[in-house]
């Protein structure tokens, strides 16, 4: 099923971003958290003590769970709007 609904809006142009060294097609300006969530990248990082998988949770900048590495810097992915060529890493963020 196409999870992107286009009854009310046209999305931005098709672009490519890089997630864990693999290319992913998405639309310019989409929220990074949502793009990752609907393209089977639900595991974003590991929790500090138990090293359990964590992912997007509140989607409004409150919980800080959706942190990923964007071009080498830690960011909350819920307030990132994607652009062509962004390089994203998920997983054990302290390893990189």
């Amino acid at each position: 099923m196409n999870l992107r609904i286009s009854d009310y809006f046209e999305r931005g142009k098709k672009i490519k971003i890089i997630i864990n060294e693999k290319t992913l097609e998405a639309f310019e300006g989409e929220c990074l958290s949502i793009v990752l969530f609907i393209s089977n990248h639900k595991n974003l990082r590991l929790s500090p003590k138990k090293k359990e998988n964590r992912g997007m949770f509140c989607l409004m900048g409150s919980c800080q769970e959706c942190v990923v590495l964007l071009d080498g810097k830690k960011v909350t992915s819920c307030n990132i709007f994607i652009k062509e060529g962004m390089v994203i890493k998920t997983g054990d963020l302290n390893e990189f």
Binding site: I34, N53, G55, M56, F57, C58, L59
Partner: peptide, 12 residues
Amino acid sequence: PGVIGLAACTVM
């Protein structure tokens, strides 16, 4: 991961 808030759904 995959367990999210209802409010997160409203944003999506």
